[in-house]
C-alpha cells in the first residue's frame, strides 16, 4: 500500500501539486486521471523518487520515503517496477537482455536461473520467440509487453505505469490493460496507472483519483463515475458524446 499525505511540488515558482493526499491499495489497479497539466506525471514521478515534494510525505507500506537513508531508498527502488510511456527499453539490448537486466543488476542468480525467469515472464506476457530481437525490430504493442515483463521480472511490490496505452491501437490497448490488471491481482502488487484513456478507466479502474489543477478533485471506482454528480469529473469524462450515451444507458439500467 502506498499512502500520500498532503504533497506539494513546485517548478520555477509555479505550484504543480497543491496538497494531494490519497491511498493506493495493494492488489488493486489504482488510476490517476486528469487533463494534461493537471499534475498526474509530477505525482507519478514523485512516487518514483524522481521528484522530491517540498511538503508532505509518501509512504510505502509504512516506510516514509523522505525519512529513509540512501540505502533504504535504493531498497525501495528495487521493489518498484515501472512501465514508461515510451517503453524505455534499452536500444542496445535484446528483448531477453532487457527483461533480465534488473536480475543481472541486483541478484547473484546464475545465468541459467535468470534465463529461466526471463522465459517465464515473457511467456506470462504472451511474448514467445522474441528473445533475440532488438526493441527496434518489434511492434509498439510488443515493446509494451517487454516493458511489462521487465517491470515484473524481480517480483515488484509496486508497479507504476505511465500512459500504458499511448500510441497503441484499441485491441492492443485492451490487451495491455488486461495484462496489467491480471498481473496486479495475481501477484498482489500495488499498481498505479497514470492515464487519460477513458477506456482504461472503465476497464481496469479499481480505484480512480482524479486530479484537477494540482488538487485531488474526485476519488472513486469506475462504477462510481456513472453515479457521481461531481462537476469536475463529469466535465472531464462526459466531454465525449460516446461516454454521455454510455452513462445514460447505465443509469437506465
Amino acid at each position: 500500500m502506498i499512502e500520500i499525505k498532503n504533497i506539494e511540488k513546485s517548478f520555477g515558482g509555479v505550484k504543480i501539486l497543491k496538497g494531494v493526499s490519497c491511498v493506493f491499495e495493494a492488489g488493486k489497479t489504482n488510476l490517476i486521471i486528469g487533463q494534461s497539466g493537471s499534475g498526474k506525471t509530477v505525482l507519478l514521478k514523485s512516487l518514483l523518487g524522481i521528484h522530491t515534494p517540498e511538503v508532505g510525505t509518501i509512504s510505502f507500506d509504512g516506510r516514509i520515503y523522505s525519512e529513509l537513508n540512501t540505502d533504504e531508498k535504493r531498497e525501495i527502488r528495487t521493489e518498484i517496477g515501472m512501465l514508461f510511456q515510451g517503453s524505455a527499453l534499452f536500444d542496445s539490448m535484446t528483448v531477453a537482455e532487457n527483461v533480465g537486466f534488473p536480475l543481472k543488476m541486483f541478484t547473484n542468480d546464475s545465468n541459467e536461473k535468470i534465463q529461466k525467469r526471463v522465459d517465464f515472464v515473457l511467456k506470462r506476457v504472451n511474448l514467445i520467440g522474441a528473445h533475440k530481437k532488438l526493441p527496434s525490430e518489434i511492434s509498439g504493442g510488443m515493446q509494451k509487453r517487454v516493458a511489462i515483463a521487465r517491470a515484473i521480472v524481480n517480483n515488484p511490490k509496486y508497479l507504476f505505469c505511465d500512459e500504458p496505452n499511448s500510441g497503441l491501437d484499441p485491441n492492443t490497448a485492451i490487451l495491455i490493460d488486461n495484462l496489467i490488471k491480471e498481473i496486479t491481482e495475481e501477484y498482489n502488487i500495488t499498481t498505479v496507472v497514470n492515464t487519460h484513456d477513458m477506456n482504461s478507466v472503465m476497464e481496469i479502474g479499481d480505484k480512480i483519483t482524479f486530479l484537477k489543477n494540482g488538487l485531488k478533485a474526485w476519488e472513486g471506482t469506475n462504477e462510481d463515475i456513472f453515479l457521481t454528480d461531481n462537476e469536475a469529473i463529469v466535465e472531464f469524462v462526459y466531454s465525449s458524446n460516446l461516454f454521455k450515451k454510455v452513462r445514460e444507458a447505465y443509469l437506465k439500467g
Binding site: 518514483l48 524522481i50 535504493r74 527502488r77 518498484i80 524505455a88 543488476m105 541486483f106
Partner: peptide, 12 residues
Amino acid sequence: TEQIDALEVMGV
C-alpha cells in the same frame, strides 16, 4: 527516450 529514468527508477 526515458532509458536513463528507467535506470534511476530501478535503483541503478
